[in-house]
Design a protein around this nucleic acid. Structure first.
Lengths: 283, 283
DNA sequence: CGAGCGATTGATCATAATCAAGCGATGTGG
DNA sequence: CCACATCGCTTGATTATGATCAATCGCTCG
């Protein structure tokens, strides 16, 4: 109950990092999307437990030019995949959260073009190529579930391209915050209105393709509009509905298994007037 | 020899479209990257031949919300994958050329979030999920080769995020033109200094996250700087070296198999001065 | 011939970058 | 323990890149 007060000792995303945690977000995730039997769960847990690495904040997990030959699964903490440009700017192309597989097929590549680094303290499981192959041939449904999961990853990557390509700063940041909220909630590390937030404003800027100064001002606008509150390493979402609308965010794209729902916009005209009207307040 | 003159009857990327062509860019590509034996080539050719579709320019191949259940392989023509935003703007997230597989794992998804449409006349092979599965279990090396190819696709997707996130209009367009040049050359449909160009300025704009008006002015700048010449449906690259430098383009990322080469930039500082100096002329 | 489309041009506006400085918290070495 | 450096955040002033609005032109096609 006093957890909020003496958080110094235990805080790390609101829960303690223990050695070799028995709880793996990836297993939960696949459980929910594909359903696993006991043997599959055990096999997966075993594979994740064999070899783990812990990295300090900002340490690099995979460097540019490397040929990893192994797949990494985030156990705890956040990581970013980015490109360092020759003019000194940086573009983050992906943020990995607990349960995320950092590019299932990365081990097929002979040269890493997008290095990965820890955002804060990061623990990953290391699955050598051969071991992964053994796991998936033994348990084809695990492979299937992992591929399904990778499809979501591809979708997210495309959403990012759209985000930086066609939205203004407020919408970009809103979209990012909504995406993180949804992904964190899905793995039980956040709620609809709050989640731990280890990103600096520079990280937000690099993920959204804007400058840190502008990220700062954008966040202030979102705060002033009553959409979010951001104290230190913790984010409150004050008005999820408006934030999602501003970011043009559709949480369904993160739920691969969901059925039914039809596309909201067919040719891009229908919702225009109402949507824009509602946004005037902030935008 | 008079092919250039009476191109009206045969032109479609400089070569005629024939019914059921015997030449498949995908087979060539996999041949080069992975090496296939006769049985594999035949199996692949057979699979590509079973079912094909031909679409008119701007016709949609896969619509938003659909669950395709099949994989498409471009045989001839160009296609774009895009997102239509609620404010009427569009972001192209991928351009598919002959030999490209339009998302190997798309058939695992239950809802298409990024429709695909033909840019000009498009012929695709249609591989139902089950048939693809049969092909790959029968010929594991084909699966491996396809996965390798998909890794390049993922890399391209990330490059696009970088492109629209961190480059100005001239650099974005330059990068796009270089990427297309390299990909087309790899499949024998372009040379180092020339390729057929079915994109409209609006397509360029939507791929680069700028407006058509600005795309027009950007192209004029590139022309004026002597980097390119663009007449109708055909592009000349006048100064490949400077165009690549302007677009910060590294063609190695499209050659999965290439060995050796080390990263040009380690921490983003080294090349700054010289590179920028050389660019002053255009930028 | 008129409609529609793609390319082009000009004028003006707005979003975001850049440059510069300062502030508060944290951490470190003398 | 203090002096100082660093880092992340914040603010202001100015600039620039690209968006927007509007109009024209040439071409193709029904």
């Amino acid at each position: 109950m006093t957890g909020q007060l003496n958080q110094a000792d235990t805080r790390e995303f609101g829960r303690p990092i223990v050695d070799r945690p028995e709880h793996y977000a990836l297993i939960d995730k696949l459980e929910r999307s594909a359903g696993l039997d006991r043997a599959e769960r055990d096999a997966l847990r075993g594979a994740l437990r064999v070899s783990q690495r812990t990295l300090s904040p900002r340490a690099t997990l995979i460097d540019a030019g490397e040929a990893p030959g192994e797949v990494h699964v985030v156990i705890d903490g956040w990581a970013s995949r980015y490109r360092q440009l020759s003019d000194g700017t940086r573009q983050i192309v992906a943020i990995y959260l607990p349960g995320d597989v950092c590019d299932l097929d990365a081990c097929l590549s002979d040269r890493c073009r997008f290095p990965i680094e820890a955002i804060d303290t990061l623990r990953v499981a290391v699955l050598p190529r051969k071991q992964l192959a053994a796991l998936t041939t033994e348990h084809p449904r695990i492979e299937c579930a992992l591929r399904q999961d990778a499809v979501v990853g591809t979708s997210i990557q495309r959403e990012w391209t759209v985000n930086v390509g066609r939205r203004n700063a407020k919408r970009r940041v809103s979209h990012l915050l909504c995406e993180l909220a949804t992904r964190l909630t899905a793995i039980g590390l956040g709620s609809d209105d709050h989640y731990p937030f280890p990103l600096t404003q520079r990280d937000i800027a690099d993920a959204c393709g804007i400058t840190p100064v502008h990220a700062n001002r954008t966040l202030q606008d979102l705060r002033a509009a009553g959409l979010i509150a951001l104290f230190g390493r913790s984010l409150d979402i004050r008005d999820r509905v408006r934030l999602e609308r501003l970011g043009d965010f559709d949480r369904r794209y993160l739920e691969l298994g969901s059925r039914g729902a039809k596309p909201v916009v067919a040719n891009g005209k229908e919702h225009r007037t109402r949507e824009l009207a509602e946004l005037e307040q902030v935008d």
